[in-house]
């Protein structure tokens, strides 16, 4: 493994990424309570270090595939915040025109190749995108995020095997937040680590990283992404983390022991990283400014959403087909 030197600039990028993701999702939570964001949301609050660390290690042409808990990943690849919240609110300014919603945030020009809401389905899709990168010799890498629960579904195993035998440039990242929806992952797997303990089955080394430590995530991400880019094949990374909220809007998360929640809240990726940066001699005012700018971005995005119109009814039957329409007969 390469040891990555974390420079001050990079550290500020990681911190800014986590702060933006945190404030953004906190606002999404508030806007849901206000009735502006509708449907459901699956927040990644507490898991920001994984998104920030990987996004900072990816190149512009690289491709992100994520799940319904993918707001932070989509944002940190560069999708505009107003268009993301607008999508969750079903407004015309939504990144998908109001046709996708919270669980399908996508920004193809930015390399955010979709949020997939059927558990595990996007692992083979990410492998396919990586296959095309090989055939077309583009040098792209696909990074595919999923939860611990996805390691029990068939598509996970098909995709790992497929990517391994074809040595595809894809990085599979299990965000192990210890719960598959409402059930502890430990209750539904026969091994300790849902991803890492399965890696050997596909000829891959078990890789575990502290998913709340942005530096550690970024170092791991850089290693596995560049390995893939060099033709070294896929990797499977297990990032240990924790979600601060329940599985989705409908879930208060009461099945989790209070002491466990408190311990993880104390090990908040933003808090530990801020402390680390201060210890490293970065001025508090620099961090304060990042926080102010991020809050201002969230406020601007919120304002855009409040002022946005609903989708034009004429768009209901557009964009099923490549010709822009949805006709099935002549």
């Amino acid at each position: 493994m390469v040891t990555v030197v974390t420079t001050p600039d990079l550290r500020l990028t990681l911190y800014r990424g986590m702060v933006r993701a945190r404030y953004f999702e906190q606002r999404v939570y508030d806007l849901f309570l206000e009735g502006i964001v509708k449907g459901t949301t699956h927040l990644g609050l507490g898991q920001e270090a994984v998104a920030a660390g990987f996004a900072a290690a990816m190149h512009p042409g690289d491709m992100t595939f994520c799940t319904y808990r993918g707001h932070n990943h989509t944002l940190l690849r560069g999708a505009p915040m107003g268009a993301l919240i607008g999508e969750m609110a079903g407004r015309s300014i939504g990144i998908c025109g109001g046709k996708g919603g919270s669980m399908h945030l996508t920004d193809v020009p930015k390399g955010a190749m979709g949020s997939y809401a059927i558990v595990g389905a996007h692992l083979p899709i990410a492998a396919g995108a990586a296959w095309a990168a090989v055939v077309r010799k583009t040098g792209q890498v696909a990074v595919c995020f999923f939860g611990d629960g996805a390691t029990n579904i068939g598509a996970f195993h098909e995709a790992l095997n497929f990517a391994a035998i074809w040595r595809l440039p894809v990085v599979f990242v299990c965000e192990n937040n210890l719960y598959m929806e409402y059930t502890p992952i430990s209750a539904v797997i026969p091994v300790e680590h849902p991803a890492a303990d399965r890696a050997r089955s596909y000829g891959l080394p078990p890789l575990i990283v502290d998913g709340n430590d942005a530096d550690a995530v970024h170092a791991m991400a850089t290693d596995v992404i560049e390995l893939a880019r060099r033709g070294g094949g896929p990797s499977l990374v297990e990032a240990k983390t924790y979600r601060h909220k329940g599985h989705s809007r409908a879930d208060p998360g009461t099945y989790r022991p209070q002491h466990e929640v408190e311990a993880w809240l104390a090990y908040d990726p933003l808090r530990i990283y801020r402390d680390r940066l201060l210890e490293a001699g970065i001025a508090a005012s620099t961090l304060d400014q990042i926080e102010r700018e991020s809050m201002s971005e969230v406020d601007d995005a919120t304002e855009q959403v409040r002022n946005a119109s609903p989708p034009d009814p004429a768009t209901l039957e557009t964009d099923l087909w490549a010709d822009g329409g949805s006709s099935w007969r002549n």
């Binding site: 990144i95 998908c96 025109g97 046709k99 996708g100 996508t106 964009d319 099923l320 087909w321």
Partner: peptide, 8 residues
């Protein structure tokens, strides 16, 4: 394609 507003 539909769910992404025609992006894909």
């Amino acid at each position: 394609r539909y769910m992404t507003g025609g992006q894909v």
